[in-house]
């Protein structure tokens, strides 16, 4: 891990870390961290495929506008990974196309 992590740069003192599950794998996260940030930190860059061509998608805008980073959280599809906070024990699964209706 680089010593120039954002946590260090901001002199952040986050609470105890936790994990959530993504596609059957444990992903470490800090309190308040977005699902997308935690996935990126764990080296996961894509978690959705497009509806027509099945092309991979992850974070595009990163600020909740583009709806490209949709992911299913605890069975609820269509959640924007970039603005959805991770919680201990969350079950996050990749999403194909536009997912199912809520």
């Amino acid at each position: 891990m680089s010593r120039r992590s954002p946590l260090r740069l901001a002199r952040a003192a986050p609470g105890p870390g936790f994990t959530f599950s993504f596609d059957g794998r444990d992903i470490p996260a800090h309190p308040g961290q977005s699902v997308a940030a935690a996935l990126w930190s764990a080296g996961v860059l894509s978690w959705r495929t497009t509806r027509v061509d099945g092309a991979p998608r992850g974070v595009f805008c990163g600020i909740g506008v583009c709806f490209d980073c949709l992911v299913t959280v605890n069975g609820r599809p269509g959640q924007r990974a970039c603005v959805t906070a991770a919680h201990p024990g969350d079950v996050v699964t990749p999403q194909a196309g536009t997912g199912e209706l809520p």
Binding site: R51, F67, L70, G78, G97, T98, G99, E100, L101
Partner: peptide, 8 residues
């Protein structure tokens, strides 16, 4: 709206 499954 956000994209929804076809034929919603």
């Amino acid at each position: 709206t956000e994209p929804l499954p076809a034929r919603t």
